[in-house]
Lab assay of single mutants.
Amino acid sequence: TSSHKLRLYERDDYRGLMSELTDDCACVPELFRLPEIYSLHVLEGCWVLYEMPNYRGRQYLLRPGDYRRYHDWGGADAKVGSLRRVTDL
């Protein structure tokens, strides 16, 4: 099985509160109590970021690497509604 891990930060450049995720999350704002995510670091696996909860809205593919600001993943703003692991490519 492949492993997945990413870290979410409330501010750009990996500042502020950090939360780690290793499984799908249908509602990021509810789980982490963060209305917006300004940076993230994908440590393992690929993920799909959705701008709205319950895997809706615009989708962004996140490969392992650094995303210091939301425009690094192509986002128009810092809204992160849900995240899902990519298990098949």
Rank of each mutant, 00 (worst) to 15 (best):
R85N: 03
R84Q: 10
T1W: 05
K79S: 11
H4D: 02
A26P: 10
T87D: 15
D66I: 14
P53R: 07
K79E: 05
R33W: 06
G57K: 06
I37P: 10
S2K: 12
H71S: 15
E20F: 01
S82P: 03
V86D: 03
Y14K: 07
S19F: 14
D12H: 12
L89C: 11
G57T: 02
L49V: 06
R7G: 03
K5T: 05
C27V: 09
K5C: 10
E36M: 14
D66E: 13
R33N: 13
R15T: 12
R56L: 06
Y38H: 11
L62S: 03
L34K: 15
G81D: 00
L49Y: 03
M52P: 00
D12G: 11
S3H: 07
D77E: 12
W47K: 07
R56V: 11
V28G: 04
R69C: 15
Y50H: 08
K5H: 08
Q59H: 15
R68V: 05
D13V: 01
D23F: 10
E20Q: 06
L62I: 07
F32R: 08
R63V: 12
R68K: 13
A76P: 13
V48T: 12
R84M: 12
L21W: 03
Y14L: 07
L49S: 01
H41G: 03
A76M: 15
Y38C: 13
F32S: 15
G57I: 12
S82V: 04
E20K: 00
V86W: 09
P35V: 06
E10A: 09
L62T: 02
S3T: 11
R58S: 05
G45A: 04
R63A: 12
R85K: 14
G65F: 00
K79I: 06
E51I: 06
R63H: 07
G65C: 05
L21S: 02
L34I: 15
G74Q: 11
L6E: 01
L17R: 12
W73C: 05
D23R: 08
R33C: 13
S82C: 00
L61T: 14
L40T: 00
L62A: 04
V42S: 04
L34P: 08
S82N: 04
T87P: 13
N54V: 06
P35H: 07
Y9K: 06
P53G: 02
W47E: 07
L8D: 02
L61Y: 15
H41M: 09
C27S: 15
R68E: 02
V42T: 02
D12V: 12
E51H: 09
H71G: 11
E30W: 06
L61V: 11
E30R: 10
R56N: 15
L62C: 04
A78H: 06
D23P: 02
I37S: 12
G81K: 11
V86G: 03
D77G: 09
H41V: 08
G75H: 09
K79M: 12
Q59W: 10
T87S: 12
L40M: 15
L62Q: 03
H41L: 04
M18W: 12
V80Q: 04
H71C: 13
A26W: 05
Y55P: 00
T1V: 09
G74C: 03
V80I: 13
L21M: 08
R56F: 15
R58V: 04
T1M: 14
G45R: 01
G74L: 04
S2N: 14
L34T: 09
Q59E: 09
W73N: 12
A26V: 10
L40A: 08
G16F: 08
S19I: 15
C27I: 07
N54Y: 14
V48F: 09
Y14T: 08
G65V: 01
G81C: 00
Y14Q: 06
F32V: 14
G81F: 00
Y38A: 15
E20C: 02
L83R: 03
D23I: 12
D13E: 11
E44F: 03
P53N: 05
S2C: 09
D12M: 12
P53K: 06
P53L: 01
L31I: 10
D24Q: 01
D72E: 09
E20N: 00
D23Y: 08
G57R: 02
Y67A: 05
A78Y: 03
G45S: 06
R85E: 05
L8C: 06
D12T: 12
G74D: 09
L8M: 14
P29Y: 12
R84K: 15
L17M: 12
A26C: 12
E20L: 04
Y14N: 05
H4S: 00
L40P: 03
E30S: 11
D72Y: 08
E51S: 11
K5W: 06
Y60N: 01
K79C: 08
V42C: 03
L6K: 02
D13S: 11
V86M: 10
L83Y: 04
R7N: 04
I37C: 15
